[in-house]
């Protein structure tokens, strides 16, 4: 379907793209996420879910972002309440959105929401129950630090198409529930599928690209197989724990005072750019 659209040469201009940054009580990374799109000349609108239910439709937008935060205080499991809420109130629209291959991005709490909603990993489309969990960190506790992540995706993920496979990126994480796990008995099978379907997107690694192999703090949360983020089978839904919007400008980097010259942007920009490029080509 996507290929067809591309062949038909229906191009969309950057400024025509309309991204929705969804929020709810406890969302707190919406402003900087919107700022990243603004900076790239793309319209992004922060919309409260109440507003979406009452007066708007998800289908007005070309892409949807679930930003970071503590939706509803995350008082059950991180992301669980918002995920169920969305499915109950906007489930139909969300499914239509996904079936049309419109991209959905989940950052940190947003990733947790996508997993709880069964949208990720999405081995066979939207799952009626969570196929994975973002469990409490090991070592336990909230952890805010910059990490290195290695790009693992061949072609599938529309959010990383501008990033060569094997490239090491740097972004900050800040969470206490980011340890991606599968049911023990399904671990091997699911990992195999992630590779087969090209759904693995990033893994925690050292600066030189050597995988963390579960070692803290290179792997900041004890995530299975050092997994940072995954996409669905179609590559249109993507979730990750680190915050690309906090690694957007050069002056957000932790070591900019050590360098005589900094590239103008941080690695996080690549995620947003890849998305925009996909949208420009798709529509």
């Amino acid at each position: 379907m996507e290929a067809n659209l591309e062949q038909r040469g229906l191009a969309m201009k950057r400024e025509e793209i309309n991204v929705c940054v969804l929020r709810v009580g406890g969302t707190n990374c919406d402003a900087e996420t919107k700022r990243a799109f603004d900076e790239l000349g793309v319209q992004a609108e922060v919309v409260h879910v109440n507003e979406m239910v009452k007066r708007r439709s998800l289908l007005e937008y070309n892409a949807l972002v679930f930003p970071g935060g503590f939706s509803y205080g995350d008082y059950v499991r991180a992301g669980a309440i918002w995920a169920k809420w969305i499915l109950a109130k906007l489930g139909k629209e969300l499914k239509a959105f996904v079936y049309e291959n419109r991209p959905v991005l989940g950052i940190c709490n947003g990733f947790q929401v996508l997993v709880e909603a069964g949208l990720l990993p999405g081995f066979e489309g939207i799952s009626p129950y969570p196929e994975a969990a973002l469990a409490t960190n090991f070592p336990p506790g909230y952890n805010c630090r910059w990490v290195y992540i290695k790009h693992e995706n061949d072609v599938k993920c529309v959010f990383t198409r501008k990033i060569p496979k094997g490239k090491v990126l740097r972004m900050p994480v800040a969470h206490s529930e980011g340890r991606l796990i599968f049911a023990k008995e399904k671990e091997k099978q699911y990992l195999k599928r992630l590779y087969e379907n090209d759904q693995l997107v990033f893994r925690y690694c050292k600066k030189n690209g050597v995988y963390a192999e579960g070692r803290f703090p290179t792997n900041p949360n004890g995530s299975f197989h050092d997994i940072v983020g995954v996409c669905n089978r179609e590559g249109t839904i993507f979730g990750l724990m680190p915050h690309p919007e906090r690694a957007f400008y050069w002056w957000q980097q932790p070591d900019w005072t050590r360098r005589a010259r900094m590239p103008q942007y941080g690695d996080g920009k690549l995620i947003f750019e890849s998305l925009i490029e996909y949208l420009v080509k798709k529509f």
Binding site: N28, C29, A31, E32, R35, G68, G141, Y142, N143, C144, R145, P172, A174, H243, E245, R246, F248, Y249, W251, Q252, P254, D255, T257, R258
Partner: peptide
């Protein structure tokens, strides 16, 4: 202690509480 506080949220922290590698 410092790492249990989010010092990066809002994406405006230019000089962070912990410096260097």
């Amino acid at each position: 202690v410092i790492r249990t506080y989010d010092h990066e949220v809002k994406g405006n922290t230019v000089l962070k509480p912990l410096q260097g590698e």
